[in-house]
């Protein structure tokens, strides 16, 4: 890890904490999402290290963060979404969306297509990561219920 990466993780942590505050979180939950924001960007950096592809790294980071959020939500007895959303904030491709829309307004269709395509793929990778985890958890939960019913 170089200093650039450390700086990014620190800033992602502060940013996640900011979004936690923005969404009315406090106390232990605020601490949890602050640390979750840091974990989120570390997952991304690890994904980058292994796959050398932004979109795949986004997917990996979203997947790992969603798993973490599911576990923490169970422990803290709170809906998953309240933890997951602020924790994923470092992945929100704000820069790409900015350059995309700026290119559109300036009429630079080549840059628009390039940034826009990147943005859609990144947002898609995040959503897909979240959904995959949600589906697996739901399926596992229903199977477990079925299993328990049979036993009784």
């Amino acid at each position: 890890m170089n200093t650039q990466m450390v700086l990014q993780v620190v800033m992602a942590t502060i940013g996640a904490m900011g979004f936690g505050l923005l969404f009315h979180m406090s106390g232990g939950r605020l601490l949890a999402i602050t640390l979750g924001g840091a974990a989120n960007w570390i997952f991304y950096l690890l994904g980058m290290e292994v796959y050398h592809d932004r979109v795949i790294a986004f997917f990996v980071a979203a997947l790992a963060t969603a798993v973490l959020a599911e576990i923490m939500a169970r422990l803290m007895k709170t809906p998953v979404i309240t933890l997951l959303v602020p924790m994923l904030v470092p992945l929100i491709p704000g820069g790409d969306l900015y350059y995309t829309t700026l290119a559109l307004v300036q009429g630079d269709m080549e840059a628009f297509a390039q940034y826009g395509g990147m943005f859609i793929r990144e947002a898609g990778a995040i959503s897909f990561g979240i959904i995959l985890v949600a589906c697996v958890v739901q399926t596992a939960f229903r199977l477990w219920m079925l299993f328990r019913e049979r036993k009784v």
């Binding site: 700086l7 800033m11 992602a12 940013g15 904490m17 900011g18 979004f19 470092p90 820069g95």
Partner: peptide, 18 residues
């Protein structure tokens, strides 16, 4: 102070982050 603090944290950290 919640909202202003959140704004400061988010804008400042993400400017450096990017």
């Amino acid at each position: 102070w919640r909202l202003p603090a959140a704004y400061l944290l988010i804008a400042g950290s993400f400017a450096v982050f990017f």
